[in-house]
Design a binder for these strands. Structure first.
Length: 569
RNA sequence: UGUCCCAUGGUGUAAUUGGCAACACGUCUGAUUUUGGUUCAGAAGAGUCCAGGUUCGAGCCCUGGUGGGACAACCA
């Protein structure tokens, strides 16, 4: 409260190289100063933290320049796509805190237009129908170091191509029988310019267009035109699409050529940036799908998944993810970001927001021998020392409490300042207690701890001034609530550098990535709602899980607290 | 035997038209604290991949290396 003097300036949004590029465009008054970006996922999976980077980038660009950002589904391949993904993606974008410009767009909305443009290319002699198999075409393509060979069907007449393409559309051919290719340059050093496919035959219902089409445009023939149709000024994408850019430009050149109306339309400018790599984290959609399908995780929103929904369920906040996106910046060099940076963002956010509660993960009973049997009382504890407006609550206290097993040591080492025989500690918010004795079971494990308490030390009482260094969290035995606590470790026990991305990551799965424990928590938590977040004293941040079918409270651990004692051990 | 992109502390990023390499995370000290958290104060850690060149002066410009990445799906 009184710290406003030393207050740091609110963190300024760093400006990155894309800002500089847009600034240049604006200085030249390109597009009349308009900025329209877009986020164009294929609905073939759930969004993950890497997409979140792109979302934050595109939407914040729009905000910064007073423009907009479209949400467009790149649904050109019905084989892989599903409405489940369309729904989850919209939910995730909204949850991250962004609003797209106008209605949601779909590439499939442009299928008619794309078809017309394909016909135009055929008419110009710039596209042809090829009868060869996928394998043959692949072989003829050459390699990055060797030029390709031209297809024997390359020089079919315009009339024949028109007829064939029409019949492809009508469904006269089986999948794989024919494709439409652009006629560019089989010797180009850029593989994407070696007569790329424009259309292929897929006899499968599309989640939006149903059975209207059996030919579908390839991504390369669709994406640039989609941006063009929507009037996107800046098409921000990841580095691997840099080599596609000449092809997009070529398609647009052909389409625009001879059409004065299109000639005056905004041409999107593509700017590439490096995708996010996180250590200990796999971001490939293909592999995440595999984790789901093989039931290595419980679903796309399993809290161990790097998906937006997984992070949400784990207790990450949209603010923390946006903060992360801001901190990692945007460049065009590949790197591997340390997950510690992400974890730092969520700790920072939750530290301000999450109320502190008492919970004992691994309980052991502590009995206060000089506290009258049958007596109870309530003690007041602050909900969040970082935010006074969160107030305080009353906690029931009695003769028997649970404390953390780790908080007692029979033979404490020098720097341990929690409980041990003859030692005095404070039960947070309540009294100071001194250990007088303890009981072991036959296995030699400590079963009960006996203490006496000093009534003069009640929290808030000022009469006792002696220093008590150790402070323990506790839960009253009579009022303790059972809870299931899920502690998550890294799903992967290796670092996943970009250079290893072709390896089968599933062999690196950490089998101990989930530990479930039965904990005792304070009674106030009975009223907690799904996705509510708490800081368990000295343990970590936890989030109430939505799937609590039983009466048990279920907590997912968002992130552990920093613990310097743990490091010393 | 190609084309394109990239190279700054452990990690991620900064560094106006060339001018003392900065910030965050992480690490380590110390102080405060009824959380070994938080907060606060401080420290260590790079001379900018290498070798040349231009310049009064180069992380930035030029040349040549080295290293890493992208591109050869009827995927996006």
């Amino acid at each position: 409260m009184s710290k406003n003097n030393g207050e740091k300036a609110p963190e300024e949004k760093k400006s990155n190289f894309i800002h500089l590029e847009i600034d240049k465009d604006l200085a030249e008054n390109k597009n009349g100063g308009a900025v329209l970006t877009r986020f164009p996922p294929e609905p073939n999976g759930y969004l993950h933290i890497g997409h979140a980077k792109s979302i934050c980038l595109n939407f914040s660009l729009a905000q910064k320049y007073g423009g907009g950002c479209n949400l467009r589904f790149d649904d050109t391949n019905p084989v892989k796509e599903d409405v489940e993904y369309v729904d989850s993606i919209q939910e995730d974008v909204k949850w991250l805190g962004f609003n797209w410009e106008g209605d949601v767009r779909f590439a499939s909305d442009y299928f008619d237009q794309l078809y017309l443009w394909a016909v135009k290319l055929i008419e110009k002699g710039k596209a042809y129908v090829d009868d060869q198999s996928a394998e043959t075409i692949a072989t003829q393509k050459g390699t990055p170091t060797e030029p390709g060979k031209e297809s024997p069907f390359r020089n079919r007449s315009v009339e024949e191509n028109l007829d064939l393409f029409e019949r492809m559309k009508k469904g006269e051919f089986a999948a794989g029988e024919k494709v439409l290719r652009a006629k560019i340059d089989m010797a180009s050093p850029n593989m994407h310019m070696r007569d790329p496919l424009m259309y292929r035959i897929i006899h499968q219902s599309h989640h939006r267009t149903g059975d209207k089409w059996c030919i579908y445009p390839m991504y390369d023939f669709a994406h640039g035109q989609e941006d063009f149709i929507e009037g996107i000024t800046h098409s921000i994408c990841t580095l691997e699409f840099k080599v596609h850019r000449p092809l997009y430009d070529w398609f647009l050149d052909q389409i625009i050529d001879g059409d004065t109306e299109l000639e005056n339309k905004v041409r999107p400018r593509q700017i590439e940036f490096a995708r996010l790599n996180l250590n200990y984290t796999v971001m490939s959609k293909r592999k995440l799908l595999e984790l789901v399908q093989k039931e290595i995780v419980a679903g796309w929103d399993d809290p161990r998944m790097p998906t937006v929904s997984g992070l949400r369920r784990r207790g990450y906040t949209p603010e923390s993810i946006r903060q992360f996106a801001d901190r990692i910046g945007v460049t065009n060099r590949d790197g591997i970001t340390d997950v510690a940076l992400l974890e730092s963002c969520i700790r920072e956010d939750l530290n301000k927001k999450a109320p502190r509660v008492n919970a004992v993960i691994d309980p052991i009973k502590l009995i206060i021998t000089n506290y009258p049997e049958g007596q109870t009382e309530e003690v007041e504890v602050i909900n969040n020392p970082e935010d006074e407006s969160q107030g305080a609550r009353m906690l029931p206290f009695g003769r028997e409490v649970y404390i953390e097993r780790d908080d007692f040591m029979e033979e404490p080492p020098r720097k341990f300042f929690r409980l041990g025989p003859g030692r005095e500690v404070r039960l947070k918010g309540a009294y100071a207690v001194t250990c007088t004795d303890f009981k072991k079971n036959d296995a030699g494990e400590i079963e009960e701890i006996y203490c006496t308490y000093d009534p003069e030390t009640k929290s808030g009482a000022t009469t006792v001034t002696r220093k008590i260094k150790g402070i323990l969290h506790w839960v009253s035995v009579d009022n303790a609530v059972d809870a299931e606590v899920r502690m998550y470790d890294r799903l992967y026990n290796h670092e996943a550098p970009a250079s290893q991305k072709d390896k089968d990551h599933l062999e690196f799965i950490n089998p101990d990535s989930l530990t479930v424990v039965n904990a005792k928590v304070e009674p106030s938590l009975k009223e907690a709602k799904t996705l509510d977040k708490f800081q368990f004293q000295r343990v970590g941040y936890f989030c109430i899980d939505k799937d609590s079918t039983s009466n048990k409270l279920i907590f997912n651990r968002t992130v552990a607290l920093k613990d310097s004692w743990a490091k010393k051990k």
